[in-house]
């Protein structure tokens, strides 16, 4: 109560980290893709709010994978489209 909910503590929420620009460049080069081809995450996503990060940043998500044990995924922060 009082303090805002820290969603990262929930067991269903994997670890979110903001990536530096060099890391993003390496990532895009490794997969031969452009920034827009990454999966997206909204800027007002509860997990992004806790981690910080602005539109255009890339978050590294370290998931507890059922197959690989631990897996990294990446999402580009975008603005939530207006409905």
């Amino acid at each position: 109560m009082g303090a805002p909910l820290d969603v990262l503590k929930h067991e269903m929420v994997p670890d979110h980290q903001i990536m530096s620009e060099e890391e993003v460049a390496d990532l895009l080069a490794a997969y031969h893709i452009s920034l827009e081809q990454l999966p997206k995450i909204y800027h007002d996503d509860p997990a992004v709010k806790v981690t910080g990060g602005d539109v255009g940043n890339v978050v590294r998500i370290t998931r507890d994978s059922r197959t690989a044990g631990r897996a990294e995924a990446y999402r580009l922060i975008v603005k939530r489209p207006k409905k």
């Binding site: 909910l5 969603v7 929930h10 269903m12 929420v13 994997p14 979110h16 995450i41 909204y42 996503d45 509860p46 997990a47 992004v48 998500i61 998931r63 059922r66 999402r75």
Partner: peptide, 15 residues
């Protein structure tokens, strides 16, 4: 779950 805990938690919930 996706609204309160974020899209990654939503993904986990679907699985």
């Amino acid at each position: 779950i996706a609204d309160v805990l974020g899209i990654e938690a939503g993904r986990n919930a679907i699985i």
